[in-house]
Nucleic acid binder design. Structure first.
Length: 322
DNA sequence: CATAGAACCTGTATGC
DNA sequence: TGCATACAGGTTCTAT
């Protein structure tokens, strides 16, 4: 669910609310949510307890909190991926509005502190000021872990030469994202055109350029007037550039609105929804008129999901012969 | 190596 | 009402 603008909204919230705090207790309610932590839930908790949260960093849809140097620990971080339905909620030592938290009316506040416990709470970190950081995740595709930080080689993911960087090990293969100033956009265009696939698949490939998901891919393609099934190999460089510009633009606008959310499944650290859903031109708009030409937006099956396009603004490519 | 599809899990909406 | 099916913002693993 959360794509770059939503994850960045969460990162910003964490930067403002939990940095400088120390983890005093870790409560793993569901082991599956820390399955990517190889050493298991107990080690996950042990590695976090007593550590201070120093910085909030993001690449694409991954975000992590740098940890201070623990006794005998190397460089590591609390890594989070929200998957399709993950949330990170900062719960202060006060009662949170039940509606904004996505909790039904009448939910029972839990614990002496008095905040409302979300039904899909998977992991809770209790912080030294009495607040808590809750990882909530309905579908459980998201996960938390405490991996080591590694230095990525020059010119790594996506074939984009750029400055060396330190990222958590599971992020080493993820390319820089479209809001990263160090991203080499020309290299992305070049790499995209060497792929033998369709342009929407390339846009969603996080090892080529990261941060774009199904919503913003469709929105970017509509803005660039390209059909997602266009073969990348036959794409003009100017078209590829226009597509990347469109994706950057739509994600920047979404970020300004606090991200896109259709329901309580996506919220910021305070439980509030973003407003960009009102600005979507095609995603989820099937049967409604294209705001540019009036033609009805259509939905097509795409990789166990859907793609939304304007058939007139985004003509399908001519079928190629093999 | 590159690419496409299945698998992972929980819940809601829709149709019969 | 009950039940079956389709679908949902993503990534990793596996098979070609």
């Amino acid at each position: 669910m959360p794509e770059l603008p939503e994850v960045e909204t969460v990162r910003d919230g964490l930067a403002r609310h939990v940095l400088g705090r120390t983890v005093v207790d870790v409560d793993v309610r569901r082991d599956y949510s820390v399955r990517r932590h190889e050493a298991g839930p107990l080690d996950f908790a042990a590695r976090l307890t007593g550590r201070r949260l120093e910085a909030a960093v993001r690449r694409g849809k991954f975000l992590w909190l740098l940890l201070d140097e623990g006794a005998g620990r190397g460089d590591d971080a609390l890594l989070a991926h929200l998957g399709m339905s993950g949330q990170l909620l900062v719960r202060g030592a006060h009662v949170v509005d039940a509606r904004a938290s996505g909790v039904t009316e009448g939910a029972v506040p839990s614990g002496p502190v008095g905040w409302v416990e979300h039904p899909h709470l998977r992991v809770r970190l209790v912080l030294d000021d009495g607040s808590a950081l809750d990882f909530v995740d309905q579908r459980t595709f998201g996960h938390l872990s405490v991996p080591d930080l590694v230095t990525t080689p020059d010119g790594a993911p996506g074939g984009c030469g750029a400055a060396r960087d330190v990222v958590p090990l599971p992020v080493a293969h993820i390319a820089r994202d479209l809001l990263d100033p160090a991203l080499d956009r020309r290299a992305v265009v070049a790499a995209m055109r060497t792929r033998r696939t369709e342009v929407k698949r390339a846009l969603l490939d996080q090892t080529l350029v990261s941060g774009v998901g199904n919503i913003y891919a469709d929105e970017a393609l509509w803005r660039a007037r390209l059909h997602g099934t266009r073969p990348t190999a036959a794409l003009r460089a100017t078209d590829a550039e226009r597509l990347l510009d469109a994706a950057t633009e739509v994600m920047t606008e979404a970020l300004e609105q606090g991200g896109t959310s259709f329901d309580a499944l996506y919220v910021d650290v305070n439980g509030a929804s973003g407003y960009f859903d009102r600005s979507l031109a095609v995603y989820g708009q099937d049967g409604r008129p294209c705001r540019r030409c009036g033609t009805l937006v259509r939905r097509d099956a795409f990789a166990n999901r859907s793609s939304y396009t304007c058939p007139r603004c985004q003509p399908r490519p001519r079928p190629r012969r093999a």
